[in-house]
Write a protein that binds this DNA or RNA. Structure first.
Lengths: 146, 146
DNA sequence: CCTTGACCTCAAGCTGGCTTGAAGTTGCAA
DNA sequence: TTGCAACTTCAAGCCAGCTTGAGGTCAAGG
């Protein structure tokens, strides 16, 4: 069992962040010693995973829905599959972005964004990003023409 | 040349977002017709790239520093290389995350986060994420969690 | 020429994800 | 027993990244 300062040190999360996560149900303390929270060792894995999922761009709410509340491990295959696919899409976008950046580093074109080679590298990602313009559902929320 | 509603439709960005991006110097309008902004076609590539970079987790400020203000294409190799490397790290993390999620889908362990196979899949990413916390202290810390 | 509505500006508001601060409680060492 | 550092709660504050609203302007169609 860890107290909050130990968990903080081991995980790299501030104590306030850990309390906040507990408040919103992302992690759970196993009990108290007096007032003080006690955490099980498994929580370390959990916060690492949370951190990773944040890197992937998921909101805390999405993360909660995906990895569930601790102690209630009924992870839904469909949700998991959807998240895995979403991550996969992101991997492809980031790969294009990385390659694009690496090309630009060595590109002598005046305006890199208009360099044909750059555009070819980014093609899939860019056109996908643009494709959301109609029937969009995700991050850039429905665009009312005002 | 596009007006803001055309750019909005084509890019999937709301008009207010486009105005906001212009305000903070991320994009530029080529001029006005009366009051109304006119954008060059290249801006479409730019906003797509911005969107991609956001997916990669960069702040608008970082994006601005990396891709520069339009018309001033002095992209710095070192900055670009650093960003490309950062993206590369993220790709590796996301790959671990995706594989982890796909494993959990088919894993029958009671608590997935403690499943050894899951942990092995995520190992590199998880330990990296944890590395921010120096655990060089006198007291014996039981970081192992399985 | 007049209307219309798509644009404009500027300030204020909102959400997510925390941090900070004030004030209270407690385990533990002396 | 006392002292105090380390915790606690709860409310308020902060930043990024937008959106919303009120009120103004203007170019084009009737």
């Amino acid at each position: 069992m860890l107290d909050i300062s130990e968990l903080s040190r081991v995980s790299g999360f501030s104590a306030s962040k850990l309390r906040y996560y507990e408040e919103i149900g992302l992690i759970r303390s196993a009990g108290r010693r007096g007032l003080k929270r006690l955490y099980e060792n498994e929580v370390i894995n959990r916060v690492s995973l949370i951190s990773l999922a944040q890197t992937a761009g998921f909101s805390l709410l999405e993360i909660k829905e995906t990895i569930g509340t601790e102690g209630r491990p009924d992870l839904d295959r469909i949700t998991l599959a959807a998240k895995a696919d979403a991550v996969d899409v992101k991997i492809k976008e980031l790969t294009a972005l990385r390659n694009g950046l690496r090309h630009v580093m060595n590109c002598t074109a005046a305006n890199h964004l208009d360099c044909p080679r750059f555009q070819r590298i980014m093609h899939v990602a860019l056109t996908k990003k643009r494709a959301g313009a109609k029937s969009r559902k995700k991050k850039t929320i429905n665009v009312r023409s005002d």
